[in-house]
Structure formats: structure tokens, C-alpha cells
Design a protein around this nucleic acid. Structure first.
Lengths: 331, 331
DNA sequence: AGTCCTGAGGTAAGCGCTTTCCTAGGACCG
DNA sequence: CGGTCCTAGGAAAGCGCTTACCTCAGGACT
């Protein structure tokens, strides 16, 4: 592997000069030396060792992103926003999937810390488990103590910069919509109760229910299509009066649609997140939209630009009802 | 930021001893010192500087992955497989999105090279553009010259370890299926003609067409849902006799479904890739399945385990027809 | 002519870690 | 009891870079 010293030797200059030329330092250098060095770089196919650079420079360049799973469309959208802003600022993004495992999340925080990233963005639901949240918070503080910055997407224990999707409001919108269509036999199909996302969305649902004197039955399952299908099937089997379902994310809603078709029962189903598939399933899914890409963009912006006074900032993004065909007035 | 020297000082030992204890080196150390060092680590919240470690060690730990876009379900699946194998081998994965831009791809190769990754996996279609392919290949060789390993997923200029989805075979299966259902007025909606994926799949389609004496009309657009919808709409408008469409990926197929619905024309539509959405659109999409996760797993396995004789290895994964409701016999 | 810049380049001190080699004390042997 | 091996621990040499500081010419000034 060619090193800077090789290049310098090849060009007959010192490593200092070679380094300056290669990095375009402001220090003036004769055209001739510049040409010689660049020629040596090309000939030796020299690529600087990023680790040596990091060590020698004080500059922290990369940023870390921890999401539950990039291949989940929800996080994919957020990640897209994160990346857009990061690359616009010339930062390398290191993406880590925690798969909703607090331990793995901690490992990744340490790993990113070890890699001297300038900032870490953690996207995804927090954990209601006090112990886990506390441990996580400790790691984050240790990272921040070394000058690293953290921004979170979604509700987390961690105090600091955060951008929060309005999950409660979204839940409220969803339930209100179903109730206004005349439904009263409503079930909510929710993800794991240990996630704050689940809790917040449910809270909104229940607030609307309480306001209208309706009770909403809650069933938990995985935040996946299959989870939604299974739980809906059992709900339909156990409750013949059910006319509407509020799914706490679109994947579950798609599963619910499948279960509904299988059971041949007309239902009003509303999803949450408004993922791209929503408009292509049949019937097209009514859903609560969250501007996910924007969520990511704003989080990365917060992470990259420290508040002048260094006080924690919190931004909210609104949820919005997207009307399609999967919800109908109770006939 | 606490350094190893701080820890050593705090524990009253040399950095050598501290390093050995922290890294669990085989060198024996008294229990007492071990305890003192670990206590210092905890107290100072010491996290080793990964860059300094990389520099000092010869060991290369991370691996790089370059895909067109992780949030595209196709690449998400592949990436999942790559990650699975990588983490199973204790490797950190750095994911880079090239967004189908050869220049960005080159930049990322250099970047990963600079970061001293042990291996790079490049997933996605190659480019038919000779110049771009050549440049890319140069970078790859420079990386390999320093001891790095490369594996590619899909057809690429680069000679070396590769795992290839059987795109041609898949195209053949798709067209044969439509023809056997009695269709003769068939159009293919394809992605950009500069991608080898497009070319290979089309070749399969045309081989089947030739075998049965049918001609398939080809229209190009983006490899996206909206691309598929737009091109299908214009196809339907210009050719009233069309009865079947072979989409070169599922996203386009979903778009085609939407266009078909809008035009209220019954069509047989077959997709490609069998992404998860396929079974949830209406009608459920007949498609050609590629075992994407396996593709990723095998590529990473190749990348991580050099061939004993260091000869290029090529593995193929078969395409398979998945029958659903979107294709019907010509009535 | 002597003093001071100023521009162009080199020297060398780290950055934080790993690891080879060395040292000093015991344990053990004959 | 002197010599030989271990054995636990330390000293220090890098890993490949950046950069503060130094040197040395050659002008521009007094």
C-alpha cells in the first residue's frame, strides 16, 4: 500500500509538501512541485489512509445514524432525509441497524463514538424500559462529553436536540376520522407496547375515543404486515361486530386488508405513516401521513448545527390525514 | 476525551498493560491490575479511538457496501443478506448509496479504500458505458492491489468474485409465461437501457419471443412505480391491441397496474423481483422471484473468504416464476 | 551594505494506540 | 547457592498522516 512517504520520495519532496499539495492547503507551492506530486499520486495510485488523517487532524468528519432497520420503508424515508443533509454538508454517513435491540443500540453508540463521528442521529421509537433507557442515556452523555453531538428522532429519554413526529395527534386524527364516519365498534392494532411510538399513537386514539364516548379495543402484535394480518384475523374471529380498524402503521394495515379479504368482511381500515404502498393496495389505504424525509432532514440539520446557546431544541412535525378508499361511512 | 494514557495513569500502570487488559490480550496479567484498569475505564468512560487502533493494528475490520439505494426494496433485501453475514463475522458494515451515478460510485470506492476496509461489495447493475466501467474497474484494481477484496452482485465489468442473478433466465420465464397464456400482443416496460440488468432481462424476454415467433415491443422508462405508470399509460393509449405487459421490475409493474386501472383495460401484467408488496396489490402480482437476501449473503461470504487459489469465482442464483392473479389466459 | 520581510520548502513533533523487545524479580534446578 | 527459566510488567518504536515551527534565499527597504 502506497503511503504519503512513498509519494513524497517518488516526487523528490518532503511529506509536508506532498501533504499540502494533496490536501490543497493554503500554503503556496510552485507549480512544478505540484505537478510532480500529483503525477506521483496518480502513478502510485495513492489513496490517503483515512484513519491516519483522522488521527492527525482534529477534524471529525463522519456522522453516525442508528435506525431500527434501513430496509423498513419507514426508516428508509427518514434515512433518505438524513443522508441528503449529511452529504450536502460533505459528511460521510455510517448507518447502523439496531433491530430494536437496546443492547445493540448501545454497542453502536460506542462504536460510532470510537470512530470519532461528529454526531449521531438516533431514529426510532424509544424504549419504555427504564433501565435500558438509562443505560442508553449514559452512553450518549459519555459521547457528548467528548464533544460529540446527538439528535434523536422520536421520543427518547435523552434530553437534547430532538425532532418529534406528532404521533399522538396522528392517533387522534385517525380515531376521529373513523368515529366521524359513524363507526363505534373500532379496534386498534398496535405494535409492541414497549415502544413509545405505540404508546403515543394509542394515546391519541384513546383521546379521540374518550371525547366521543366510544371505546376502542386494543390488540398488540408485531409492527409488520404479517403481524397485522394475524391479529386482525383473530380479532375478526372473536368479534363479529367490528366495523373499523385503526392500524398503528401501514404495514399492519396492509396485513389487516389481507385478513379482511380472507374473512370477506367489509371493514374500514386506516393506516399510519402513509408509506408509498398505501396508494397501490386495494382498496387504496387511508392513512396518517408523517413527512418522514423532512423528519430526517431536520434531525440531521440539528445534529450538524449546534444551538448557539447549546440548549436542547425540540421540533415537531405534524401528522396529516390522507383520505383514500379503505375507510367508508358505516352503512 | 479520555485516552488510553489517561486510563493507564489513573490505574497506575503503563499504557501497554492497559491496552492488553482492555483488549483481552493473551498476555497474563494479575487480577489486581486488571481490576484497577477496568475500574479506570469505567470511571473515565473510556472508549478507544478506533482510528488509532486501525493505524496501530494491521487488522482491517470494516467492510464496505455500495448499492444504488438502500431504501429501494430490491437493494434493501440484498443489503439485509450482506449485513447478516458481515455481522456474523464481526464486521462493521459501511453502506454507501451511489444512486446509480458512476462518479459517486468511484468516490465511494476511494472513500472505502481510504478507510481501509477489508472488502467492498458492490451491488446493482453494471453500466454499459465503456468509459465509466473502465474507470470503475481501475479503482477497484487499485484497491485490490493493496490487499482489499471485492465481490460484485450483478453483472459488472470487473473480473473477480461475483454472484449473478439469473436475469436472462428470469426474462425468459416471464415472456414464456405470458405467451403460454395465449398472449401475443405483449409489451415490455423496461428501465434505463444503459443498465445491464435491463439488457439482460430484455434478452431473456426476446429469446422466449423468438422461440415462439412472437414480437415483444419494448418501452423504456425509470425503474420506478411512476415510471411504470407513465410508460404504461402511453403504451395503452398508442396501442389498443395490447393484452399483456412484462415489467422489468415490480415497482414498474405496480405502476402498470395503476395505469391499467385508470384506463380500465384488462391486462395481464407480470413483474420482476417479487418484492413483498407483490402479494398485496390488487390483483396480486405474478412475478419472477430472485432470492435477494441469499444473493447478499453469498456475495458477502465470497468477499470475506478469499478463494484458496485466488481465482475469480462466479455463483449464479436462479430466477423462479411466482404465480398470482395479475396474469390471466387471453380470453 | 546591512536589516527585515516574505515566500517556498523542510523538520519533526505529535495524534492514540498496539506490540516487540527488554527488564527485573522469583521459582526452580542441580 | 549460583545459574536458568519463567513471568508480569514497562519502555519505546512505530502505524501514516498533519502542521507548527524552522531554515534559507532572494528582494525591498533604510
Amino acid at each position: 500500500m502506497a503511503t504519503l512517504a512513498d509519494v513524497a520520495r517518488h516526487a523528490g519532496v518532503s511529506t509536508a509538501t506532498a501533504s499540502r499539495i494533496i490536501n490543497g492547503s493554503p500554503k503556496p507551492v510552485t507549480e512544478e512541485l505540484r505537478a510532480r506530486v500529483l503525477a506521483a499520486v496518480a502513478e502510485l495510485r495513492y489513496v490517503p489512509n483515512a484513519h491516519a488523517q483522522m488521527l492527525a487532524r482534529s477534524h471529525r468528519n463522519a456522522v453516525g445514524v442508528i435506525v431500527h432497520d434501513v430496509s423498513d420503508p419507514y426508516f428508509a424515508e427518514i434515512t433518505r432525509g438524513l443522508q441528503r443533509v449529511a452529504t450536502a454538508n460533505g459528511r460521510l454517513v455510517i448507518i447502523c441497524n439496531s433491530f430494536r435491540d437496546p443492547d445493540r443500540e448501545m454497542e453502536y453508540i460506542d462504536l460510532l463514538h470510537a470512530h470519532q463521528v461528529a454526531a449521531i442521529v438516533i431514529a426510532g421509537s424509544g424504549y419504555l424500559d427504564e433501565a435500558a433507557a438509562k443505560d442508553l442515556d449514559d452512553r450518549m452523555r459519555a459521547f457528548e462529553a467528548t464533544g460529540g453531538r446527538i439528535a434523536v428522532v422520536g421520543r427518547h429519554q435523552h434530553p437534547g436536540d430532538a425532532v418529534l413526529p406528532d404521533n399522538e395527534e396522528g392517533g387522534y386524527l385517525a380515531a376521529t376520522h373513523l368515529i366521524e364516519l359513524g363507526h363505534t365498534a373500532i379496534a386498534a392494532i398496535a405494535g409492541p407496547p414497549s415502544l413509545t411510538t405505540t404508546v403515543d399513537r394509542l394515546a391519541g386514539l384513546q383521546r379521540a375515543a374518550a371525547e366521543h364516548g366510544v371505546t376502542i379495543r386494543v390488540a398488540h402484535s408485531d409492527f409488520t404486515r404479517d403481524g397485522g394480518e394475524a391479529i386482525t384475523a383473530s380479532l375478526l374471529a372473536s368479534d363479529p361486530s367490528l366495523t373499523a380498524i385503526a392500524a398503528l402503521n401501514d404495514s399492519m394495515a396492509v396485513g389487516a386488508l389481507a385478513a379482511m379479504r380472507a374473512a370477506n368482511r367489509p371493514l374500514s381500515i386506516i393506516g399510519f405513516d402513509d408509506m408509498p404502498i398505501a396508494r397501490d393496495v386495494t382498496p387504496a389505504l387511508t392513512s396518517i401521513r408523517l413527512p418522514l424525509t423532512e423528519l430526517g432532514e431536520r434531525a440531521m440539520t440539528l445534529a450538524l448545527n449546534p444551538a448557539p446557546d447549546n440548549l436542547p431544541r425540540t421540533e415537531h412535525v405534524r401528522a396529516e390525514l390522507i383520505l383514500r378508499d379503505s375507510t367508508r361511512p358505516l352503512s
